[in-house]
Structures are given as C-alpha cells and as structure tokens.
Design a protein around this nucleic acid. Structure first.
Length: 277
DNA sequence: CGCGTCGCCTGTGGGC
DNA sequence: TGCCCACAGGCGACGC
C-alpha cells in the first residue's frame, strides 16, 4: 500500500512526534513482524532505554536513528500502518508492536498481512543490509539531470512500468504511482526503456518528480478500503487527483475516453489508450 | 538479463 | 445467509 509519498508523510510527522523521545518499553504481539533480528528479545532489548534522534527515509524504508549508532528500520509492506496511540483508544486489530515512550504516548505498528517489518540494526548491520543499501536513487530526495536519467534508461532494456517499480532502479514508486507517472508522461507501461526519445525521457523524469511532489502535498493516496492513514489516523487526499489509478471506466481527464484497467504480470495497471503511446 | 508466476499473509467484496 | 473465489499499495525466489 504505502509508496514513497505515504512514507514521506509519515516520516515528517514521525520526526516531529518521536524525535527526542526515549523508548520506555516495547511490546511485540506478533513475532512474524520482526524478521531480521535474531529473536524478539534481541529486538526489544536493543530498543528499550534508547532515544530516537531523527527520522529519515530512503524509498519506502523508514530509518529511525537511535542514540549510539543503531537504526530502527521499518517497512510497511502492503498493509502496514504507524499510528500515534491516543490515551483512551483500545488496541486496534492487527496491532503487532507498541513502542511506549518515557515522556508518555506510544507508537503503534499495525499490519494485517504481515508483509511489513520492523528491525533494529547496528550501524554495521545497517551498512550491510542489501534491501536498503542497494536501493536506487530516492525518487524525491536525490534528483538528477534528465540527461543522467536518460543514460540510466538507455542502459536497460526493460518495460517502463516494471523498471519504475524496480526499487534498485528508482526507490519509492509502487503500483499506484508508476501508473500515475506513466500517464503524466504520456507513455505506455510496456514501452521499452531504451526506446525513448530525448523528449520522452524528459517528460518521464518530470512526471516522476511532479507526481510524487503533488502526492506528498496532498498527504498520499487513501483508497476506498482506507488502508493508508497517516500517523494520526487521517486519510490522504491525493486519490481524488489520480488521473488513472483506481479509475477504471471513468473518463480520462485529458481526452474523456474511459480509463482502461488491465492485468500486467499480476498487477492491476490503469492507463488511457489514447493519451499514452 | 528480462519477464512471468508463485508464495508469503489476512481481510474484504462480489457472484451465485 | 453462506460459500468460494478473486483481489489487494510489496517484494523476493524461481525457472525459462
């Protein structure tokens, strides 16, 4: 569910809400959410008594820096949520981990499908974790020239959608935003990366930046199932600005033809047959 | 190297 | 009402 915009919105709020806070206690309700620490006890011990110093993000990974050099890394997978606990509320369904702070309050990790994870990594382990270190350029934070982007495209011979979703190529785009980017660029999902004209390269790169910036501005996409909410439980507003994703049969905002939905290598793919070539 | 499929999990919604 | 199937924002392992 959460792609770069949703994770970035969470990062900003987490930085405000948790930086400087000390972790008093950690409760793990489902050890399947702790995938790369030796065991739950090691995870808990590595967190209790530590202070969160800052919150950063690369692609879809959150990285909460702890005093010393440890990192609490979080990936939300398909269904993960981070919520600031409210004093009165009951524990939500699928609560996997609660971090309680000495200053009061708590951070909840909720994840029905358990594709997400939390882990504490030492500086050394963090530097050796390929899932994080081998990410491509962060699509928002590490902007490059379109000429350089063109060289990256030319070095591959891959269909555009799968390339945009390849976290080792560019980090942060998933199924929603790759479709939105391709519509904004006027390109079909199955165009091959090294076939683009210079103008198409420019359009594609500009679309990556613009779509992500707009999506962050509107605090991400919440679909009808309400799967994504921010740290305070509020949905994002970007869904209403989608050009194609989740708009099957609705009029293309540019040419009024119905938006098409297709199944491409197992993933729903939305596009306009007329506006994308 | 690129691509399609499957599996990991659980919940939900549609069709019958 | 109930059952079964398809499907869901991610991602890595396979096999061709």
């Amino acid at each position: 569910m959460p792609e770069l915009p949703e994770v970035e919105v969470l990062r900003r709020d987490l930085d405000k809400e948790t930086s400087g806070k000390k972790i008093k206690s950690v409760e793990v309700f489902d050890e399947r959410s702790i995938k790369r620490n030796a065991n739950v006890k090691a995870f808990v011990n590595a967190l209790e008594g530590k202070k969160i110093t800052s919150v950063s993000r690369t692609g879809k990974w959150l990285d909460l820096a702890l005093d010393k050099t440890d990192h609490l890394v979080i990936h939300l997978g398909m269904s993960g949520q981070l919520l600031k606990a409210t004093p009165k509320s009951e524990d939500p369904d699928h609560l996997k981990v609660r971090l309680s702070f000495t200053q009061g309050g708590a951070l909840l990790f909720i994840d029905p499908r358990i594709f997400g994870e939390m882990a504490v990594l030492s500086g050394e382990e963090f530097a050796a974790t390929e899932d994080i270190q081998d990410l491509g350029l962060d699509a928002l934070d590490q902007q490059i020239s379109w000429a350089e982007f063109g060289r990256m495209l030319m070095s591959r011979r891959t269909k555009l959608k799968s390339l945009l979703m390849d976290q080792k190529f560019i980090a942060g785009l998933g199924n929603i935003y790759s479709d939105e980017v391709l519509f904004n660029a006027g390109l079909m999902h199955d165009r091959v990366s090294n076939s683009l004209s210079a103008q198409e390269v420019r359009r594609l790169y500009r679309a990556v930046i613009e779509v992500l910036q707009e999506a962050v501005k509107y605090r991400g996409s919440t679909l009808s199932d309400g799967g994504y909410v921010d740290l305070f439980g509020k949905p994002g507003d970007y869904r209403q600005y989608h050009k194609v994703y989740d708009r099957e049969g609705e009029a293309c905002r540019r040419c009024r033809r119905p938006v098409v939905k297709a199944k491409i290598s197992g993933r729903s793919t939305y596009y306009c047959e007329a506006c994308q070539v």
